[in-house]
Design a protein around this nucleic acid. Structure first.
Length: 771
DNA sequence: AGATTGGCGCGTACG
DNA sequence: GCGCCAATCT
């Protein structure tokens, strides 16, 4: 009995064909992780050295899960696989080869905040308008360039890129990119995108290095290939060039990260680069019932850019997909909460098997309120992670600066935190002098006498700071990470700072720092990973610790999952997950699909794939909902059913709420005009997508500013409350003065302006709540 | 220097 | 409608 016996015939082929280029198209719920892990296990069972197998994923979670599952089959050997995220695997290679690129091997990895903060500094130094040159904007542009392997020198020459910047009113991006790159170099820092671009440069510029790794990596596997960008693909292609045992796994229909640089073309055109490609399509869905799989197929059929496949399931029957149409966003939230409550009663599904998925994070609020009202426990996913918190970043900045004195962003964070009298003016003077002499900022801390236009007192305070930092560095050779961190916490006063603060936030910050210290302690006490003979080891324990956490997020933190709670998250965050019951909410034009996507076919297709992802998360029960009116940016907007709902065949759906009686074309209750800034953003988007899109009218909506057509806006109002203003078909408007009964048997007493008090049974009446 | 208020901006997100 | 940042006050 082999582990291979657990596979269906196509899965088996995908697992056992280990040589030559292979593409595995893995539909939703098709057993992808199993195939991937078994395939690697199978390679190892053939006697291949794990050290010669590279497996790349996008998330730490995915790689940890895979490693664990492979270890179950082949044992501890799995630990020596070259497996991890693109960023962590490439960072490891870059550290080994750092000196070739003129970097110290302790280089710092700047996260997005560090990068934006540096850009902000540079924009200010250049005297540019920071309303126009927003750090996030510039960062996005630089990131796109790096993902496309465009260096600052290239950028300065690229007419179309500069033209695009000029159109957006930001012609100086290329210069900022060049300055930013220089500044990162002076800080001995690489940002996330550099980890890819510099790896490519390393392999491209140093044939001996390329040859070494090409030879070493006999087998390569890439997960979620539809999410790769140009840089990632180029690196992989270079590395696989000798053995050509490259296996990519993915699903073009689930490509939803175009906005962060992913090119769906990588998977669509893969066959062109590897004519001998063997293709295996995992089309059997083991997750969902028939209606759900059918609906998913109905939806994705409308996309042009896709590989041919037909997903099927053997789980016939099941419940049809419910579509709830409600009068307002708050109605939608109440409706969904009630439905969850009812579903829970009827089917006894654990809370944790129910998810509410939305397009934008802002939508979570109304659901929080409605769930709380019914005492349904919930957890919102997304938001800032542990390592993003200010207090954690501050503490880590001390550790970073201890390891890498050149780290300008770490230095700026903590030189005056906790307060030690080194104000913004002093820091600005330091930066000016450092730039003038073209040295790292730390040089000025080290030699404050040289800072221009600074009082003696300021210089003395900086000197003290420098002495303190040096005392930390002196501990590196013979103290472990925890001993140093503990000492830093006590010496700098950072722990006291939060200990003194007895506000709720202060206490939480104090606890977070304690948690961080516990983590460091655990790390320092733990057995360390083994390094290959030729691998450069970190100089000391603290450096090793920092290397580990700089590429970590706490997405795989399971602390919150112990309690049985409903899960609320964006559709993006739900990718790769599954639930018994899924609610996809806000199914409206201009929301899902997003208003910013309706201008180009490519963008709409990505939204459609996103909806496809949402639908295929459900095992047994799927509910879609939308509202006819919704507050957006504090403004009431009238909404129209999402085109994606229309794409699902009627036979798979049951509609709740009244049917729309008029056709959209003669209907005037659509959108108010979007706010001005939003319109201009849409226009910007239009310019950005011009090169590759079909021209489209701005929106298909009328801009008439009319009230909703109440007759057709039927809603389900079992969640009515006293004081609500309501509309009734016969009695017109009135106010709720009493509610009796439970659930659908509720009876409301309503005082109607023209008819007086009436008792209304909610399950029959079409009461409409007016906001 | 630290707290408070006013104004502006608003998509989805992994390293 | 809300949260974050920056300018202003104390």
């Amino acid at each position: 009995m082999s582990f291979l016996d657990e596979l269906n015939p196509i899965q088996y082929e995908a697992v056992t064909n280990i040589n030559g280029p292979v593409m595995i198209i893995a539909g939703p719920g098709s057993g992808k992780t199993r195939v991937l892990t078994y395939r690697i296990a199978n390679i190892l069972k053939q006697g291949v050295d794990p050290y010669r197998v590279m497996a790349l994923t996008f998330t730490n979670k995915a790689s940890a899960e895979m490693r664990e599952r492979i270890e179950k089959i082949v044992g501890a050997e799995a630990r020596n696989l070259y497996m991890g995220t693109f960023h962590s695997v490439f960072a490891r290679i870059l550290r080994m080869e750092a000196e070739k690129l003129g970097l110290p091997r302790n280089f710092t990895i700047y996260d997005t905040d560090d990068a934006k903060s540096l850009l902000k500094t540079i924009i200010k130094e250049e005297g540019l308008n920071d309303k126009l040159y927003k750090a996030s904007n510039v960062y996005y542009r630089i990131s796109s360039a790096k993902n496309a392997l465009i260096t600052p020198e290239d950028y300065l020459q690229l007419e179309d890129w500069i033209e695009e910047d000029t159109q957006a009113g930001r012609p100086k991006i290329a210069e900022l990119y060049a300055k930013y790159t220089l500044r990162c170099f002076k800080s001995s820092a690489l940002d996330f995108d550099d980890l890819l671009m510099k790896t490519h440069q390393l392999l491209h510029k140093f044939p001996d290095v390329l040859y070494k790794y090409q030879n070493r990596f006999q087998y390569m596997m890439i997960d979620e290939f539809q999410d790769t960008n140009y840089a990632q693909y180029e690196i992989v292609r270079l590395l696989a060039a000798i053995h050509e045992n490259i296996c990519i796994v993915g699903d073009d229909a689930q490509s939803i990260y175009g906005f962060r640089g992913a090119t769906i073309q990588n998977i669509l055109n893969f066959e062109k680069d590897y004519p001998d490609l063997k293709i295996f399509k995992l089309e059997q869905n083991y997750r969902s019932t028939e209606y759900i799989v059918n609906a998913a197929n109905n939806i994705i059929k409308n996309n042009q850019a896709q590989l041919k496949k037909k997903i099927f399931t053997e789980q016939l029957g099941g419940e049809k997909i419910k579509v709830y149409r409600t009068a307002s966003d708050s109605d939608e939230a109440r409706m969904v909460a009630n439905a969850i409550f009812e579903q829970k009663m009827r089917l006894h599904i654990p809370h944790s098997e129910i998810a509410i998925l939305y397009r934008t994070n802002a939508q979570s609020r109304s659901f929080e309120e409605s769930l709380r009202r019914l005492n349904i426990p919930y957890k919102i996913y997304g938001g800032i992670s542990f390592y993003q918190r200010k207090e954690i970043k501050d503490f880590i900045a001390y550790l970073r600066l201890t390891i890498n004195p050149n780290d300008e962003e770490a230095l700026k964070r903590i030189i005056n935190f906790p307060a030690r009298g080194i104000g913004q003016t002093s820091i600005d003077r330091m930066i000016v002098t450092a730039n003038k002499h073209d040295v790292a900022l730390w040089q000025m801390v080290d030699y404050p006498e040289g800072i221009e236009d600074l009082q003696g007192r300021g210089k003395a305070l900086i000197k003290n700071f420098s002495i303190m930092m040096k005392s930390f560095r002196a501990m590196l050779p013979n103290k472990n990470a925890y001993e140093i961190a503990d000492y830093i916490g006590k010496t700098t006063g950072i722990i006291d700072e939060y200990y003194k603060d007895k506000t709720i936030e202060g206490i939480s910050k104090f606890e977070n720092i304690q948690e961080l210290l516990n983590g460091i302690k655990e790390y320092s006490m733990a057995e360390k990973q083994e390094y290959e003979e030729d691998e450069v080891r970190p100089e000391n324990d603290l450096a090793a610790y920092l290397q580990q956490i700089s590429l970590l997020t706490d997405q795989d933190d399971n602390n919150g999952d112990v309690t049985d709670r409903i899960k609320l998250m964006t559709v993006h965050a739900a990718k790769g997950l599954e639930f018994d019951s899924v609610y996809v909410v806000g199914m409206e034009e201009m929301l899902f699909p997003s208003a910013l996507s309706v201008l180009s076919r490519e963008d709409i297709e990505e939204e459609r794939r996103l909806f496809y992802v949402a639908v295929t998360r459900a095992r047994k029960y799927l509910t879609l909902s939308y509202a006819l009116s919704r507050y957006k940016f504090g403004q009431l907007n009238y909404c129209e059913q999402s085109r994606f709902i229309d794409e699902i065949k009627q036979e798979n759906i049951i509609l709740y709420g009244q049917k729309q009686t008029t056709s959209p074309s003669q209907n005037s209750n659509f959108s108010k005009p979007e706010p001005k800034w939003y319109q201009s953003k849409i226009k910007e988007q239009a310019i950005a997508s011009q090169q590759h899109s079909i021209p489209a009218t701005l929106t298909k909506k009328s801009t008439a500013d009319t009230k909703p057509n109440i007759e057709q806006a039927g809603s389900i109002t079992t969640e009515l409350k006293i004081g609500d203003k309501v509309y009734h078909d016969k009695f017109d408007t009135g106010k709720v003065i009493e509610i009796e009964g439970i659930g659908i048997n509720k009876i409301a007493t309503v005082f109607f302006n023209s008819h007086g008090n009436k008792k209304i049974m909610l399950k029959f009446a079409k009461l409409q709540i007016l906001e």
